[in-house]
Write a protein that binds this DNA or RNA. Structure first.
Length: 269
DNA sequence: AAGAGCGTCAACCGCCAACTC
DNA sequence: TGAGTTGGCGGTTGACGCTCT
């Protein structure tokens, strides 16, 4: 959280830099009441949770004499553009988090060949994906493909594959652990069910939804729908990434186990 | 072990079109 | 009708974490 101090305030007094969970909460509350418009008035809006809202704009600034100035305002001390961007790219409940799937990758390639760098146009073909996300994806995966040497592509691919295999192993371990836990829980549940009070909805701590699960939790908050985790599509992506024609044979053999995983996951989905 | 390099992504900037008064 | 405001868009930057050398 100390990052916010390094970014400091903008020339016009607007706060810049990473958003805090409180600011997110405030913005969500604002959009819930006023809809996705009048972004510039977010800064003047005071939420119903006045205590928390006030705490949003507690800022510390360095004055130059080893003094930290403490200032409190009402409203969200962000400019309209920043608010809109945060909402559109991160807080919108219909956002789809997680990796770009091969299908989406194909759409991006297809649309980019039609429209070029018109990211917002491309994004309309991919519900739940933002122009920023697509832009970043394109830059990361395709932009320099023409320039990149084969050796670099291979190195990059090997590195990515290793990382993916590592993650998959971790996922498997986690699943096994979850299964063990679930079995333990089930064996205990019969005994405890009689003693436990009616299920209490666990309070969601409001943090930035970094993961798909967190994003779904946010969706639940908006729509009152219970969150049901979807099977991970992360591995499926690799089917798409490995479509490059010039991938070395060595990589091919390395991919074999990974492809088996992809197959399994695909049938699961 | 440590620094360099790379990938990823959130956020900012500047421009421009649409809207409002 | 023109000036000011607002919102949308594409480009760019910077931080962070991971991998490589």
């Amino acid at each position: 959280m100390d990052q916010q101090f390094s970014w400091g305030d903008g020339a016009e007094g607007w706060r810049k830099g990473p958003w805090t969970t409180e600011e997110d909460k405030f913005l969500i509350e604002y959009v819930g009441l006023h809809g996705e418009r009048r972004w510039s008035s977010v800064s003047r809006f005071s939420g119903k949770n006045q205590v928390n809202s006030r705490s949003l704009n507690v800022g510390l600034s360095y004055t130059g004499d080893n003094l930290l100035t403490y200032h409190v305002n009402s409203g969200l001390n962000r400019n309209g553009k920043s608010c809109r961007l945060r909402w559109v790219n991160y807080l919108r409940p219909d956002l789809k988090k997680g990796k770009i799937t091969p299908q989406e990758e194909n759409v991006i390639l297809e649309q980019h060949s039609k429209f070029g760098n018109r990211w917002s146009t491309i994004a309309r073909s991919l519900p739940g994906r933002t122009d920023n996300e697509i832009k970043n994806y394109w830059r990361t995966h395709f932009k320099d493909n023409g320039k990149a040497s084969l050796a670099q592509s291979e190195k990059s691919a090997i590195r990515l594959l290793k990382r993916q295999q590592f993650r998959w192993q971790q996922q498997q371990q986690q699943q096994q652990q979850n299964q063990v836990d679930a079995e333990k829980f089930m064996s205990l549940s019969d005994e405890t069910a009689k003693r436990v009070a009616p299920p209490v909805r666990e309070e969601i701590s409001f943090s930035s939804p970094k993961s798909t699960e967190e994003q779904h939790l946010l969706n639940s908050m908006f729509h009152g729908v219970d969150y049901v985790p979807e099977p991970s599509t992360e591995n499926i992506l690799w089917g798409g990434l490995w479509n490059f024609d010039d991938v070395h044979a060595e990589l091919d053999s390395m991919c074999a186990p990974s492809r088996a995983i992809v197959q399994t996951q695909t049938t699961f989905c």
